[in-house]
């Protein structure tokens, strides 16, 4: 019997356990690692205030961000463009409230800032077959030059709203998913990666 349906034995309300799933390839063709210890905040510019937000972030954090679907990463902060005048700010620190408060103070009336550290979960996606697996879940073009390191997209992954950005040429991607939908997204990627060997890491 084909073993394609390992997910059928796991109820969607039961978290998929960390470890190897799918084909027993020497190395997992697709890896998915949940990143812990991150602070996440959403930034929404006031009408016409995107340039002011960009200036404020640069002044406060020394990071030049752009109002495009791109990720700009500096030390201690990266900002992902999620819509006109909208960003997702991510930092490697686990005091989300203070992180958001700091950003809010920096941008002042130019934008509203909300702590989303509890609202989103970020995964690192990698592996030799990650593009092939993502092609089963996403409708956007991930091949260069359409999508290159630094590119970002707010899109749907197997009916789940996500934000995706590319980290490097390998390629490695970061995927930001709403907390209530992390299992649904994990299952979709596990199914997509099963034929290449799928490895889930939960930090």
């Amino acid at each position: 019997m084909a073993k394609a349906h390992f997910l059928e034995g796991i109820d969607p309300s039961t978290p998929l356990a960390a470890g190897r799933w799918g084909a027993a390839t020497a190395t997992a063709g697709v890896t998915m690692r949940r990143l812990g210890g991150l602070s996440i905040a959403s930034i929404v510019s006031a009408k016409g205030a995107a340039p002011a937000v960009i200036a404020a972030i640069e002044a406060a954090h020394g990071l030049a961000i752009v109002d495009r679907p791109e990720v700009c990463a500096g030390t201690g902060l990266c900002c992902v463009g999620t819509g006109p005048g909208k960003w997702l700010a991510v930092a490697p620190r686990d005091d989300g409230e203070a992180f958001a408060d700091g950003l809010a103070a920096a941008v002042g009336a130019a934008a509203s800032v909300n702590d989303q550290s509890d609202g989103f979960v970020i995964f690192e996606l990698a592996g030799a077959r990650i593009r092939a697996a993502l092609a089963k879940c996403l409708s956007i073009d991930l091949d260069p030059p359409a999508f290159v390191p630094g590119s970002a997209a707010a899109t749907l992954l197997a009916l789940v709203g996500v934000t995706l950005w590319q980290i490097d040429e390998a390629p490695v991607y970061h995927l930001c998913v709403g907390r209530s939908l992390t299992e649904a997204a994990t299952r979709a990627l596990a199914a997509a990666g099963a034929e290449y060997g799928f490895e889930l890491t939960l930090d």
Binding site: E8, P12, S13, K136, S180, L181, A185
Partner: peptide, 15 residues
């Protein structure tokens, strides 16, 4: 495709 049985649509879990 993937969207059959319990995966017909994403399941959302509350915190």
């Amino acid at each position: 495709g993937h969207h059959r049985g319990k995966d017909f649509r994403p399941t959302r879990l509350t915190p």
